[in-house]
Design a protein around this nucleic acid. Sequence first.
DNA 1: TAGATTGTTAATCGATTAACAATC
DNA 2: TAGATTGTTAATCGATTAACAATC
Lengths: 205, 205
Amino acid sequence: MNRDIPGFSLQRMPVYLNYLRSLPDDDAYTYVSSGAIAQALGLGEVLVRKDLAYTGCAGRPKVGYPRAELIAALEQFLCIHDHKGAVLVGAGGLGSALLGYGGFANYGIELVCAFDNDPHKVGGIVGGKPVLSVDSLEAGCMEYGVQLAIIAVPAASAQGIAERLIRAGIRAILNFAPVQITAGEDVKVINIDVAANLAILASML
Amino acid sequence: MNRDIPGFSLQRMPVYLNYLRSLPDDDAYTYVSSGAIAQALGLGEVLVRKDLAYTGCAGRPKVGYPRAELIAALEQFLCIHDHKGAVLVGAGGLGSALLGYGGFANYGIELVCAFDNDPHKVGGIVGGKPVLSVDSLEAGCMEYGVQLAIIAVPAASAQGIAERLIRAGIRAILNFAPVQITAGEDVKVINIDVAANLAILASML
DNA sequence: TAGATTGTTAATCGATTAACAATC
DNA sequence: TAGATTGTTAATCGATTAACAATC
């Protein structure tokens, strides 16, 4: 549905939504101009207008964009109201932190459960979510009917886990293991390597 | 030093390094071709050659790139041997996970300490690193002489913390709070919003 | 030599910015 | 009306890919 928009514009949509939601609920912010948004987010103002045009929410010359409508348009654009489930694989340090993180709800996403291979963790609850055996990964994914997964396992197991997830019906993966996960065209993958990002910053000093 | 190379090339450098390091220490991998790298990482092979050219490591026609030399060139390119310290602000779930994460060492970076405002955590040790009071943030940064920081505090405090870090001499920030941190031209910032990334994936389903 | 691979130059593609007309 | 802001079209910029020469 959102496939006809430039990738970089799509990436900025949650940023706009987040910013607009953070504004005080005040008459002064009933309308927001592209210039104000651009300044707050460090972007060009023409870019902001072009991005917002994709949401279908029209701004008014001399006034700006109606904030409430714009938020609603962004929410619809990001399909936030069709509540989606996600599973997490790997309940280690990072995985446990993600299980306890409340921020997914802002985008209509709920982490339904985690899978781990540590018998001390399996059967327990972390961040309010059940931790299941990684043996039941396929069964669990299909039972919950989820299409989204987060991988937070060691690098060596990540690609294998990804392949199992895909066979179990997962169609999009957020990968924190420090390897590039490769998958077919029909599966979306975002790789986030925390240490690599810090290394990039360090090399720019 | 690395400022004359395209931003996207720089971002791929740790990916190449990681991949090359992961190969078995085997005669079959003394040389690696750009085609093999491209296939493993899902990139175009011309792109790989162009990126690798920035490292100054020359490949040999018909043979490929000498793996050990290429790793050394990438390490030098990323300045991995000038050991760098980093501080973390916010020892909550995500912060604690980062304190216990060993992956920074792969890039010559060491997390030296964390700052938090929870009196129950201050004075303690998490992931082997001391947790100091956020009141001593400026003093701590200057004492350790660090230029790198990770922000893992709630959204509302992130911008303020960033400004304090910058005043204390920090020149690059990896921000996990779900707000865009803005700073002067001379300070590098990478914002990673985990929930937003999952939302982008979800909207593409 | 023939074949495989690198490295470079030109072409393409996509994203951002600039210019400006439209609108309230 | 004048001024501020949106929205669109054209120009620019940067990144990727294609074509091909160079090399072992």
